[in-house]
Write a protein that binds this DNA or RNA. Sequence first.
DNA 1: TCGTAATAGAACATTGTGTCTAATATTTCA
DNA 2: TGAAATATTAGACACAATGTTCTATTACGA
Lengths: 179, 179
Amino acid sequence: MDRRVQRTRALLQEALLALMTEKGYEETTVQDIIDRANVGRATFYAHFADKETLLTSRLEDLRNMLAERQRQSPTLGFSLPMLEHAHSHLRLYQAIVGHERGAFVLRRIHRTIADLALRDVQALGFKGTVEERHLAAEYMAGAFMAVLTWWLDHGGKLALGEVDTIFRRLILKGLKELT
Amino acid sequence: MDRRVQRTRALLQEALLALMTEKGYEETTVQDIIDRANVGRATFYAHFADKETLLTSRLEDLRNMLAERQRQSPTLGFSLPMLEHAHSHLRLYQAIVGHERGAFVLRRIHRTIADLALRDVQALGFKGTVEERHLAAEYMAGAFMAVLTWWLDHGGKLALGEVDTIFRRLILKGLKELT
DNA sequence: TCGTAATAGAACATTGTGTCTAATATTTCA
DNA sequence: TGAAATATTAGACACAATGTTCTATTACGA
């Protein structure tokens, strides 16, 4: 692939993430992004149809990473890698959670988690119907996002391993295990 | 309150909901709303600062209804009324769930549920720290939204009572109880 | 019925989007 | 290396939607 293309795409992705951290996704305009990336307007649209497509390209990288890591560990394999990713981009994730308007970023992450969770549903030896398996996956994603959101809202202080443990307990045994 | 005010506000709210059902929240413009409501542009802005404020006014009605109903039944009292509301506005809720872009509507509903759930946390006799109680409430909201989303995605066919039961089981006993 | 307040309608400035052009720079590969 | 292919640029542009402001008209409540 042409070096110029690699460079431009990377610059745009980095600019978007930096701006999301500073002012949130919705509040960031295409003009902001190309100014920050120091790239021409036409160039942006040569690579991405719009702001959302740029975000999607970044989320796909995340998704691939998670899917890869999931292959290595057996059940709920997305949990720890996702928490690690959030931890290493803490301020970005806190900005995502903090900005009500950019909720659709959270929803996209939720969808990614739900997809991965669906694989886990098999691994956990689920017997139910197709619909019940989807419910299980949806529930796992919802519960994980709740724990993730809570963790981020409280500064991301609690150790990764502990958060992962809390999530697993909640998923498997419900609220009774929380106390 | 002046009849004209009541009338105008109601027309605008109804128009927004109708348009959300047809084309989603984000895709609906202020122009669409005032055309549908047959109301002047200046009139719209005399009542609401923007489209989002109009939506908020409607969500507050929902919130008040849920809070009222919750007072009557003891624990997890928001569940059944919320499911009933979704069922009686099925096509609207399905549109909300279906449109990725309008995710922030879902997030607003989630926040409402989480607030109500926090009250339930006390009722359930939770002992943990403030943070743990928030986690419990966040988890309840996440799990409920997961069940609600799943139910809507599958046509809202399953009986309300059954969905409510599924939710309660998941919350209290986790995935083990699903099968 | 009268004064007050709400509304209609239209014009307006502003902001952001996505497209296009012709000139320029960079990369690839023969 | 040199030529062809491709990417980038700056700026202008049409367009869509927002939110403000003005004036004349209309509906309301007391």
